[in-house]
Design a protein around this nucleic acid. Structure first.
Length: 817
DNA sequence: ATATACACGGATCCCCTATTTCC
DNA sequence: GGAAATAGGGGATCCGTGTA
């Protein structure tokens, strides 16, 4: 049997003591295929230097005899080969020790603690990663496969009989073919319950949405019949019906929003309660959950995606949404929002409200489906770039992206993989203290005209490439023929000879440039996603090196990269000043300078000159020209504030950084007001008009004309309530919510306002009230702690003291004495 | 455990001293 | 008059949220 095939989900099983990969995917006619295949498993034993041939041969003989009987499974070393390999860039002689079962490699490694062996590596990748590296059957690429179709076969314990697929093939031959379009089958789902706590309440309804399919299953009733609503008799039947529909639609991806943490575990808990089997897996198995901090729900053969997790790692940093709630994310990416519906306990819902509830439930799945379709190119490109399965990538962090790319590309450099750090190593790394970071130039507050901003393209990455910095190129001793750099952790030296990590990064860097060009030439979601995947990968390299959990962590490399970052930023500042331009601000990789009376082309010439003096792939580019820019003092008023400025370009577009207006923990009134003030000042430099506006707002505030909505302060609960050492206003608000039985916890955004209180209470937290609590807003607080701080230092630039201007304020301070 | 450091600014915490209150 | 309570000043610390 021969067919084309695209691998989507990877799993593995044991049969007669050996590991087999079980890959689920499709062919181009949409048939669902399961491929069964195997690969040799082995680990590397790196030999000590200068071992005689005789000694090596004796060692091989000894290792070949290793047999284990652990965990009721017999494993033995099957074969030992000797290879010339590299480990951390150093040529080594290494033994490739083949064994029967991947899971026993750890125990085999334990047996190899011999005096002739320096290190043991390559046994901690996980079978699936190992298999993909070994067989190069990578996710979401097309293959032409050939093999025996298993049909009621006894082989592998009759696996084909239990699997709900069109074809089950034992792989014989495989060939990569040109990529073609693949449209996955997606099923989005969402549940509604009475209680938020997992399994505590009943599941009232479940919505399911796929291409040309929409359904709300419920056991509650309504008067009017909606064609997509299907009634069942009780919750148990609802669960059965859900399973039935998932089977019927037979999706590649079952997608939810926060479904790892809510929907799927809830379904499982309720199914257990009713003794209903939630047989969602293609082999009839139930969803399984990982243990640990963040639970993940896995379904065999179907990739369960929690879209929230993917958005959080891959997109959150570029988003304008202040929370990652389905509503806000959908609004930002789809221009669509959740249906208006006030969630209430089901006992309080009656008649037509149920219909609205169904519609609301259905629409959540619609949004989830649309979002998945929107993000599918991105997810898909991350998968293709890292070669790890969709399930893993959809839940991975940035370090996993980088590390996967490294592991799947080591072979080109003949490298043996480094091991994952153990618990002790991690705590050692965590306690080694931080490294000195980037340099930020203190700005001189003021309103400036005609500004140019230069910045380094992918600064950290280009430094790593250009100076060959990595764990494997770090030299133990000073050397004349080396790159040297003085850091806060000492002076470090790096080999001139290119190391695999910088080389690999260079490849990523070049591909990023190439894909960016491709995208610009042919903009579409796929070229955009590819360009973005490489952008993220390229940008995360330095973070990965400094991440304590990374295999290729190096504090020396990290400190060196940052020392170079400081050096190049400071040098650029000096060179720009030497050319006669005043530098107003600089942060890490950027320099803002006054153009004086120079034309844009003259500034560009300066840039070209600066570029000619940069090493390697390092590049300084023009970020943009700006008409005006505003820098202010810190609240203390003594120094210029860093990481806080506002710019306006020639087209009148503003760029505001760090100001309260971009911070979600300030009330809307203060944010909006500051935004308007900044815009007005930048647009025509008219601070008088802006001041007039501020006075109006203050008047409204004093007359209590401001809506409470505009005064809400939102703060996230970053950890469990019990872990707070300080009792902050948002902790108080959170406690109040819990008292009111509103289920909140870590990660929730807490909303409150500051109210007037009868007795004179000093602390803000004593004035905190929830939105639905009766009370009037505290005029003094909003005036002095929100409005004034937001604009005070802006007007200070024009020598206007807002505080004095505000009516009554001056008298009050005088009256205090 | 789930990329890094730098930075701002509000609010509380905590120690100290001065003042007020209590007996 | 002296001890205890209270107020408030100011630096340290906690905390959340930005920029790069």
């Amino acid at each position: 049997m021969k067919t084309d095939f695209i691998p989507i989900d990877y799993d593995y099983f044991d049969w007669h003591g050996r590991n087999y990969a079980k890959i689920t995917g499709r062919n181009s006619s949409g048939k669902r295929i399961c491929v069964i295949d195997t690969c040799p498993v082995y680990l590397w034993a790196i030999l000590k230097d200068k071992l005689s041939k005789d000694k090596i041969n004796k060692l091989i003989k000894k290792i070949e005899k290793i047999e284990l009987d652990t965990k009721g499974r017999k494993t033995r070393v099957e074969k030992v080969e000797i290879h010339d390999k590299n480990f951390l860039g150093k040529p080594v002689k290494a033994l490739k020790v083949f064994a029967t079962n991947y899971k026993d490699l750890h125990d085999v490694a334990d047996k190899l603690g011999l005096p002739e062996i320096e290190k043991r590596r390559g046994y901690d990748l996980g079978y699936i990663t190992h298999y993909i590296i070994e067989k190069k059957i990578t996710p979401l690429h097309w293959y032409e496969i050939e093999g025996e179709v298993l049909n009621n076969s006894e082989e592998f314990g009759g696996i084909d009989a239990v699997l709900d697929v069109d074809l089950c093939i034992k792989l014989d031959k495989v060939k990569e073919i040109n990529d073609k379009k693949f449209t996955p089958k997606i099923l989005a789902y969402d549940i509604e319950t009475d209680e938020i706590q997992i399994g505590k309440g009943e599941i009232l309804m479940i919505s399911l949405v796929s291409d040309g399919f929409k359904k709300v299953i419920t056991w509650k009733t309504a008067h009017k019949k909606q064609d997509y609503v299907e009634y069942v008799k009780d919750e148990a039947e609802l669960l059965e019906k859900f399973t039935e529909y998932v089977k019927k639609v037979s999706p590649d991806f079952l997608v939810g929003y926060f479904s790892d943490g809510f929907d799927l575990p809830y379904l499982k808990a309720r199914a257990e309660k009713h003794n209903v089997k939630l047989s969602l897996g293609l082999d009839g198995s139930q969803p399984r959950f990982s243990r640990g901090m963040s639970i993940t729900g896995k379904i065999k053969g179907i990739v369960h995606i929690d879209l929230l997790k993917f958005i959080r790692t891959a997109y959150a940093q570029y988003m304008t949404s202040e929370t990652l709630s389905l509503n806000e994310v959908a609004k930002e990416f789809l221009g669509d929002t959740k249906k208006d519906f006030k969630l209430e306990h089901s006992s309080k819902i009656s008649g037509t409200d149920w219909e609205k509830y169904y519609e609301y439930n259905l629409h959540d799945s619609v949004l989830t489906l649309n979002l998945f379709e929107k993000f599918w190119p991105d997810l898909s490109e991350f998968v293709k770039t890292t070669n790890e399965p969709v399930f893993e990538i959809s839940r991975a962090g940035l370090s996993k992206y980088t590390e996967s790319y490294i592991l799947h590309n080591l072979e080109k450099y003949n490298e043996i993989p480094e091991k994952r750090p153990g618990y002790e190593e991690i705590s050692k790394r965590k306690h080694s203290g931080g490294v000195e970071g980037a340099f930020v130039l203190e700005p001189k507050p003021g309103l400036y005209e005609n500004i140019a901003i230069f910045d380094f393209t992918s600064m950290h990455t280009s430094i790593i490439i250009s100076h060959n910095i990595s764990r494997s190129t770090l030299l133990e001793k000073p050397s004349k023929n080396a790159v040297s750099i003085k850091t806060d952790k000492g002076t470090f030296y790096f080999k001139k000879e290119k190391g695999f990590f910088p080389l690999m990064l260079r490849e990523i860097f070049e591909l990023r440039k190439k894909f960016k060009k491709q995208y610009q030439k042919n903009p579409n979601p796929i070229t955009k996603a590819r360009s973005n995947a490489f952008k993220v990968l390229s940008a995360s390299a330095h973070g990965y090196i400094g991440f304590f959990g990374g295999r290729y962590y190096s504090i020396e490399a990290s400190a060196s990269i940052l020392a170079f970052v400081r050096k190049f930023n400071k040098e650029t500042i000096k060179k720009v000043e030497d050319s006669g331009h005043k530098v107003i601000y600089a942060d890490t990789d950027s320099v803002a300078l006054l153009m004086n009376n120079k034309s844009e082309s003259e500034i560009k010439k300066l840039l070209t000159k600066l570029n000619s003096e940069l090493p390697g792939v390092m590049e300084l580019e023009l970020e943009d020209f700006y008409k005006r820019g505003l820098w202010v003092t810190t609240r203390a008023g003594t120094t210029g504030a860093k990481k806080k400025y506002a710019l306006i370009d020639k087209k009148g577009k503003t760029k505001i950084r760090g100001f309260e207006t971009v911070r979600r923990d300030w009330c809307k009134l203060a944010r909006d007001m500051q935004n308007k003030v900044i815009r007005q000042i930048l647009k025509d430099g008219n601070e008088k008009q802006a001041l007039k506006y501020v006075k109006e707002i203050i008047k409204e505030l004093k007359e209590r004309k401001i809506s409470k909505e505009d005064l809400v302060i939102r703060t996230q609960l970053k950890k469990p309530l019990s872990e707070y050492k300080a009792t902050t206003p948002h902790v108080i608000a959170a406690r109040k919510m819990i008292e009111k039985k509103i289920p909140i916890g870590q990660g929730n955004l807490i909303e409150y306002y500051v109210a007037e209180t009868r007795d004179k209470k000093k602390l803000v937290r004593d004035k905190v009230k929830l939105l639905d609590e009766k009370g009037e807003y505290n005029k003094k607080y909003y005036l002095e702690r929100q409005i004034l701080p937001a604009v005070e230092n802006i007007f200070q630039v024009f020598n206007i003291n807002v505080q004095e201007i505000i009516e009554g304020k001056k008298q009050m301070t005088l009256g205090d004495f």
